[in-house]
Simulated assay, not measured.
Amino acid sequence: MNSELKRVCVPGPVIVGGGPSGLAVAACLKEKGVPSLILEREDCLGSLWKLRSYDRLTLHIPKHLCELPNMAFPPEYPVFPTRRQFISYLDAYAECFSIMPRFGQEVKWAEYDSTMELWRVRTHDSEFLCRWLIVATGENAEPVLPEIAGLSTYQGRLLHTSSYANGAEFKGEKVLVVGCGNSGMEISLDLCENGSQTSIVVRDKLHVLPKEMLGISTFGLSMSLLNWLPINLVDRFLLLCSWFILGDTQKVGITRPKIGPIEMKMTTGKTPILDVGTLAKIRSGEIKVLPAIYRFTTRGAEFVDGRVLEFDSIILATGYRSNVPSWLKEGEFFNSQDGYPNRPFPHGWKGKNGLYSVGFTKRGLLGASMDAQRVAEDIAQQWNSETKHMFFEL
């Protein structure tokens, strides 16, 4: 081992990641009397929300379905808390449970040492030894850049949504948004409302649903109906309501998949778009829908229908990915390609040799909270006096 590295023996679990998932499992462990240590690569908690999210972002799911274990949102918060409100909630959560991560500790690699029967977790200046390792870096650890010909030749302003704050600085520009998930749709609306000539690439078939139906959040309504009805009937109901509220999306260049929105979410993890006003701007022509990009040019892009258009700025709303394969030296629990647990929800929270995951359920904060409670309960059952004192003998 490098003589400059400091070896740290951790009696409880090491948690990699100081976002909502890491905070949730740390709080659940503390409630059961198990100490833990969070390693966070940035200098703050909830870095995705604090450093890489746009100003107008709100939760797309009602707050009661996004609460972390053992702490509700303040009652005065709206149904869909804003970005700033959610950040305040995370800070208050960490303070409530006295969670103090080690910041600036990016994990370079982690590997199970069968001789010591411990995990070795290496950062730039330290090696942490622990009996349990909890991976909580989440589904959105690294921005995804598309593999489209000519991207490096484009000479205008190019950025990923992780670097986008608001549309004020794009006023008067021709802007292309590449990607039509919830972020792409919402950023397109933000650009349009700030005076940009906005276009959005819609390459795939997708479901667009109203954010609320019958005065209730669409997601909350769906979850309630699933308690009584099969998925196919719930999907039919959602699509019928969407048709009455939003009209035929195919008329504006958005084709729906054959599989229903809830079934698609549960089988593929792909979330339907919850409309916040973008569709009306598309219908009015203020936001233009374009097909897939064939290649980028020095001044814009050529599309698969043959059109070649120029843009002052291009914003890549192409999502994020897990970064687990880049640092976790383990080939069974996590998939080496996509960085998710190989076993699907609800069975993907526990591996071998004290390895766990939180926040890889494709079910948002609710799924992360469910994982956190399962992991904490499992580790607490193993936590005994022998384990507590084993490190003093190293």
Rank of each mutant, 00 (worst) to 15 (best):
R363T: 12
D248P: 01
R41C: 02
N384Q: 11
P341M: 13
T198H: 05
L145W: 12
W132I: 03
T115A: 15
E263S: 09
A141R: 02
S199I: 02
P69V: 02
G331M: 12
E386G: 00
G285C: 10
A141C: 00
H207Y: 10
K288T: 03
W119N: 01
S114N: 15
V79A: 06
S88D: 15
D190C: 02
V25W: 03
W119K: 06
L394Y: 12
K251H: 14
V201R: 06
E286W: 02
L65F: 08
C66A: 11
V308E: 14
S188K: 03
S313R: 12
L279P: 00
P74F: 08
L279Y: 02
E139H: 05
R299K: 12
C130E: 05
E40V: 04
I287N: 00
S326N: 05
E330C: 12
N342Q: 10
R307V: 00
R102N: 13
T153S: 13
R84L: 03
L225Q: 07
L145T: 09
E76W: 09
L209R: 09
L176F: 05
G306A: 00
I245Q: 05
E212Q: 13
L225R: 14
T278N: 00
F333I: 03
T387W: 06
V10I: 15
G277E: 02
A94R: 11
M264G: 08
F97Q: 07
E173K: 15
T82V: 04
E302G: 02
L226W: 01
T249H: 03
L37R: 15
R343Y: 03
G46I: 14
T153G: 08
D275S: 07
E127T: 09
I38E: 09
C44S: 13
S322N: 05
Y320V: 07
I273N: 05
L365N: 06
V135P: 01
L48M: 15
E193S: 15
G138L: 04
V25R: 09
D113G: 08
A168F: 04
F237A: 03
G19T: 04
A92H: 11
M370F: 10
S88A: 14
G319S: 02
D275I: 10
K63C: 05
K281L: 06
G19W: 01
Y93C: 09
L65H: 10
V324R: 02
G253Y: 05
I200G: 13
H64E: 08
N2P: 02
A165I: 11
C241Q: 13
M1S: 12
S199V: 00
W228E: 11
D338R: 06
D55W: 08
V34L: 10
